[in-house]
Design a protein around this nucleic acid. Structure first.
Lengths: 190, 190
DNA sequence: AATTACATGTAAGAGGTTACATGATTCA
DNA sequence: TGAATCATGTAACCTCTTACATGTAATT
């Protein structure tokens, strides 16, 4: 069973938008797909080469004024077919997300310092709240500057996932702290 | 900035429970930590060797009746100190979980077949519901066979995270389908 | 003069998956 | 006899991160 190369499809998908250079792809993912995807230049540039080799994209070098030159990549018909095929393939499994905080929590009975555990969760909640604020800002900017483009609907749906997931994690964090503080080993579990 | 080796701490943490062999560690993670961690034998066995080399654990070979022999590993004082130190270190960043469904959704305006997108989400929801059912079963079994051990509280907290995260994802899925079915940004095509 | 943004790339290595290889014991 | 469970391990491979390397142009 071969491992699926999702990076390939992520880049191919972005090439269908107006982002065409490695630099722009990186920016796009960091800015708009950051709640469910990430990528590094160490993946992007070699993959762009591979796409050209496989004839899924072609490259056009562009001389820019006031900026360094850049290489722009465009998806081919073959590339579109490959992307389309992937889009039509159902997700085979819901992936397990590793969570370092939960791993620590799982072994927390080994450590006597309950306060420290609570502090970890509190800091986690803070980070989640920052993330949530970013999502709300993005959502606002889509609504405000919205073009009514069809993409928009799907972008808002993915953003909604981020919001809900983050919100649920915050609520869990607060409940977890309450449980630990309430300190009922044998007692009431809500 | 070196990458943290979480696998090391996961195994070290499990060695503080009554799971002592590579095989048992694998089972423990697959059964009890499966909602936030996963591991393969290709990681476990080499890491157990490394732990012994680093004097964080020692090994005792055990001849078993009616079963193949096994190697049991025990955490050393040095190992406990390393684990404790990690437990006390705050989480530096909330990791981004890659989500293949969201990636597809983000590019879904490229594909005309709206029904197929809905089907993907529906299948995703089904898998989440199966997962949720497993969590509820585990929770019941902890409550029923519960020993009142301190571990139990923390196990339930991690399980609660899994439940909430899964529930939130299911609710998102239903909302997303409703949006796609009802909400046309540009009015219905096809 | 220094920093930031724009821009492209590579090499080493960490981390993880998968397939393979081996073998004992139990149960249907 | 065959499958399942128990048990340990390795090698090849893939994916991704990080550090490094280079350079232009604009801004402070």
């Amino acid at each position: 069973m071969a491992q699926e190369n999702h990076t390939k499809y992520a880049i191919l998908g972005i090439l269908t938008t107006s982002c065409n250079s490695g630099y722009e792809i990186k920016q796009m993912i960091d800015n708009s797909l950051n709640h469910f995807w990430k990528i590094s230049y160490g993946q992007i540039y070699p993959m762009l080469k591979t796409l050209v080799t496989d004839e899924l994209a072609y490259v056009v070098e562009v001389a820019q004024e006031n900026k360094p030159d850049k290489k722009t990549y465009f998806i081919t018909e073959k590339g579109r077919a490959v992307l389309q095929n992937w889009l039509e393939t159902p997700i085979e499994k819901v992936s397990i997300e590793k969570n370092e905080l939960l791993l620590k929590l799982f072994f927390s009975s080994n450590q006597k310092k309950e306060q420290l555990t609570i502090k970890h969760i509190e800091q986690y909640i803070e980070k989640l709240q920052e993330r949530l604020a970013v999502f709300l800002t993005i959502e606002q900017s889509i609504h405000t500057h919205g073009t009514g483009h069809l993409d928009e609907q799907y972008w808002l749906i993915t953003l909604d996932y981020g919001k809900r997931a983050t919100q649920a994690a915050i609520e869990w964090g607060n409940a977890a702290i309450a449980t630990i503080k309430g300190g009922n080993v044998n007692g009431e579990k809500d």
